[in-house]
Design a protein around this nucleic acid. Structure first.
Lengths: 150, 150
DNA sequence: CTTCTTTGGTAGCATGTTGCAACCGTTGTG
DNA sequence: CACAACGGTTGCAACATGCTACCAAAGAAG
């Protein structure tokens, strides 16, 4: 599916997002980028992914405007991969997946990595889906509308 | 990767979530479930996915506790697939992907489906990542901590 | 109760993608 | 200058995907 079936033409934003990211590896690359990974080798060691796959995914992410290839920050001749603004905008997606995982796939007390507020070292507040006037919304409180924007 | 490489043993909640969902089709199935699809045929027509793939994905999602197979609500002998509480907890993930897609992959004025507050018909508020004391957090304001919970 | 259609799959096969291991040029290091 | 590390590329085997055809059970029509 990754390369053959495309959702680009879908009018569902979820489908376009999914298509733009590419596959799960790509999402984990983005996660690592949020966690500070920048270099090819860092991603490779962290993920344990085959190098040819990593190469392909990094290329896709750069082509899709999620990552950007920049000169290495340490002055070496190598390059680094950093999140673009579009990539950083994936933050809520990663946080949402992280919180879902924490709540559903860890037994209480089981060790896991944790995303914390840098200033206070505290865990983040759980994401909330809110209406425009600030009410907390459950899935059942929402409905999908086919519209022309305008 | 979907079936061979497993992230189950990872201590990163994002990886476990990704592994639990399975693949992109599964996520789109979940999206459709949020949008009201319940029957095999509904998912199949909506997604255009091959039936054997859909069969496999539905099974995985049921096995993973995301969906549940229940008797059809219309009294027929067929079965329906509905979100479990764990599945409904994916709501912020879907909303986050949707908002990212809306903001990055549609030209202003381009038609797309929209998730609205059922009560008022308004668009949802953009998801915000917040600290425990309610400050809005950017990716750079956070850091990943390896901890033992407790 | 008989036939036709819909539903919800399964089976087999061609094709595409993934993962692995080996290789390789360039860059950094002692 | 030698040697290791980095960042890939290539080829191949194994696996997963997508397509089409097929099929049994259920529902609808008469």
């Amino acid at each position: 599916m990754v390369a053959r079936t495309r959702f680009d033409d879908s009018e569902c934003p979820v489908a376009r997002s999914v298509d733009a990211i590419g596959d799960w590896w790509s999402l984990l690359i983005v996660r690592d980028a949020f966690d500070g990974s920048r270099r090819f080798g860092e991603f490779q060691r962290s993920l344990g992914v085959a190098k040819n796959i990593l190469t392909a995914r990094l290329r896709t992410l750069v082509a899709g405007g999620v990552l950007e290839s920049v000169p290495a920050s340490d002055g070496s001749a190598y390059r680094e991969y950093v999140l673009t603004p579009k990539g950083k905008a994936l933050f809520p997606v990663i946080v949402a997946l992280r919180q879902w995982g924490e709540q559903n796939f860890f037994t209480p007390g089981e060790s896991h990595s944790e995303l914390v507020d840098r200033r206070q070292g505290h865990r983040l507040r759980a994401l909330e889906v809110l209406s425009s006037d600030g009410r907390r919304l459950d899935p059942d409180d929402t409905t999908v509308h086919k519209i022309s924007t305008q």
